[in-house]
Nucleic acid binder design. Structure first.
Length: 572
DNA sequence: GCCGTTTTCGGCCCGACTGTTTTCAGTCG
């Protein structure tokens, strides 16, 4: 059984946690975390790299030692160093370290002095009042840990970007109305438009006497105040989402925005570039000695290290620093580039609106075409269309198009890819359509090889145009099916197939990493809303966000084209 | 443990807040 990148990454993270508790060199610990991150971001299988004899040390953060450890894991399925460490160090301690307020030093003390081995053991010790007797622990620390143990689980989950927006927007509005507040920006992964957001980092500039900090902790949605200082406060909202607020001077706003937008890896690179030039970069600005030489805007900070402005979505340490240095940053796609939408449902299957209602809503978005892609007959739960019903819908669309002005409905279908890789409708009806969107809704648990072969066979069908939600993931509830995306991308290129970026907030599929890989391979993308009601058409911007994170330009996306050019692109 | 216009050693980002201290360690982002 092949070892997946994610498996190795988890073992590296676990080893790093245990090493840290043991008191190992912090940079050695970081090296394992860095390598884990590299493996997670890697769009192809490290198992295949090993069997192809490729040199793993060319991957960032992976040197001779870690390369050989990866090879051992791939070849034997075992990680001897981790097994060894687990003998000396209970595995449950890694979980204890995840509890807020507990880091490696305290976990080590708990283990050595009280024999704590896991969260359960910690709970017993805390309830027995043993914690505050340890040096470095006090009454308050014990209380905090007990409180954390009780409410555990509520604060650690990640939130869909859309959910985070629904919390952030009213709060930003509230803070913006506080006396003396000049600017309010949500930084962090929210600003980088990650598909999911852990917490909110809000940055404020204001006059010296502004009561913004007090007003923040008094906000009606706050359930818990974690910390509350002069320039920084942390609260938990009733929804369980944690929010950090930082107050900075206008002269430092750009530097702070850069710092709190991250990612961490990106920031470290920029700070290092500053050091090479003899500058110190922190959240207050760029400093030469004690003199601030930049910091008012982010562009100033970049400019001091010889870089052009880098869009937040690119700041993931995935080559953006090098691209910026070489003048090769992509010109990222924008919402206004979109001219149409190629995946939408109506009442005919599981949607809520009529053809005409969808057309009207699409026109209001300023689009000139909208593909109607109801489900096909295999998807009975969604009232999928068979050949006869689809033929009637095609007639209906043709008639409606004669009436509509400024918007064209495209005759299309979201046709199921059956288990054997055939499509769920006859060629005769598929031929009558303007384009076909193809997707998997069944047999999610096929082996990786079978699942990959299934979709590749479907792509061989000359009526296959767009692969919808290619991984099948549902954020927070379902992993994608096991499939070799790299081979699918190659096969799509060879057959002139398009990959979808599904803009539904819980899908965002393709993800950012595969978007980048597909575009680099020369495969075109379609960014589509998979709308089931007119208001789902608003989801387009979430698809744009992920595409931007994947370095996608307008040219990479088929639905930035005029209808005439789109028709040429989908002709196989 | 990685990495190299500082290259095989000696660095590795840096400041705020809390709690337990009495000048600072630990944690967090």
């Amino acid at each position: 059984m092949p070892v997946h990148n994610q498996d190795i990454a988890e073992q590296f993270d676990e080893l790093a946690d245990l090493l840290e508790i043991e008191g190992a060199n912090a940079f050695r610990v970081r090296a394992y975390h860095n390598a884990a991150r590299t493996l997670r971001d890697l769009p192809h299988s490290v198992t295949e790299m090993v069997s192809a004899g490729e040199n793993l040390t060319e991957l960032p953060g992976i040197g001779k030692d870690l390369a050989s450890k990866i090879e051992t894991i791939v070849e034997t399925g075992r990680f001897p160093q981790l097994d060894e460490l687990k003998k000396a160090m209970p595995k449950g301690l890694a979980e204890v370290k995840d509890i807020a307020g507990l880091g490696p030093k305290r976990v080590k003390a708990l283990h050595e002095a009280l024999g704590v081995e896991d969260v359960e053991g910690l709970k017993k010790a805390a309830q027995a009042g043993q914690l505050h007797e340890l040096s470095g622990f006090g009454k308050k620390t014990e209380e905090n840990i007990l409180h954390e143990l009780e409410t555990r689980g509520s604060g650690e989950k990640r939130h869909l970007l859309r959910e985070a927006e629904s919390r952030a927007e009213p709060l930003v509005d509230y803070l913006g109305r506080v006396d003396g507040v000049k600017e309010v920006v949500v930084a962090g992964s929210y600003r980088r438009r990650k598909a999911t957001v852990g917490d909110l980092d809000i940055l404020v500039s204001c006059t010296r006497n502004s009561p913004v900090m007090q007003r923040f902790v008094d906000y009606e949605d706050v359930s818990d105040v974690i910390s509350h200082g002069g320039t920084r406060a942390t609260v938990v909202l009733k929804s369980g989402m944690q929010v950090d607020l930082r107050v900075v001077a206008s002269s430092s706003f750009g530097a702070a925005l850069h710092y709190f937008t991250g990612s961490k890896g990106h920031n470290i690179r920029v700070r290092k570039m500053g050091l090479e030039r003899g500058f110190k970069i922190n959240e207050y600005g760029v400093f030469q000695g004690d003199t601030q030489i930049a910091g008012k805007t982010e562009a100033d900070v970049y400019s001091q290290v010889g870089l052009p402005y880098i869009e937040p979505e690119l700041r993931e340490e995935r080559g953006e620093i090098e691209a910026a240095r070489d003048g090769k940053l992509p010109e990222l796609i924008e919402l206004d580039d979109i001219k149409g939408n190629l995946h939408n449902h109506t009442k005919a299957s599981d949607g809520a609106a009529t053809l005409r209602e969808m057309a009207t809503a699409a026109k209001e978005h300023g689009w000139s075409y909208l593909a109607i892609t109801d489900h096909s007959k295999a998807l009975r739960v969604a009232n999928g269309l068979d050949e006869d019903r689809l033929a009637r819908q095609v007639d209906e669309i043709e008639a409606l198009n004669d009436e509509l002005d400024g918007i064209t409905l495209l005759k299309s279908i979201e046709v199921d890819i059956l288990e054997d890789g055939s499509l769920d409708l006859s060629d005769a009806i598929l031929k009558r359509l303007d384009l076909r969107v193809c997707s998997i809704h069944s047999h999610f648990r096929l082996s990786r090889d079978k699942q990959t072969a299934r979709v590749m066979r479907a792509m061989d069908n000359p009526y296959f145009n767009i692969l919808a939600h290619p991984s099948g993931r549902l954020l927070g509830s379902r992993e994608g099916y096991s499939i070799d995306m790299e081979r699918l991308i190659d096969h799509a290129r060879e057959n002139g197939c398009i990959m979808e970026v599904n803009a539904q907030p819980q899908r965002l599929d393709l993800d950012d990493v595969y978007c980048k890989m597909a575009c680099e391979a020369g495969v075109k993308l379609a960014i589509s809303t998979d709308a089931h009601t007119p208001h789902h058409l608003d989801f387009m911007r979430y698809g744009i966000d992920q595409a931007r994170r994947g370095w996608v330009t307008a040219d990479d996306v088929v639905n930035t084209r005029s209808l005439k050019d789109l028709r040429k692109l989908v002709a196989r």
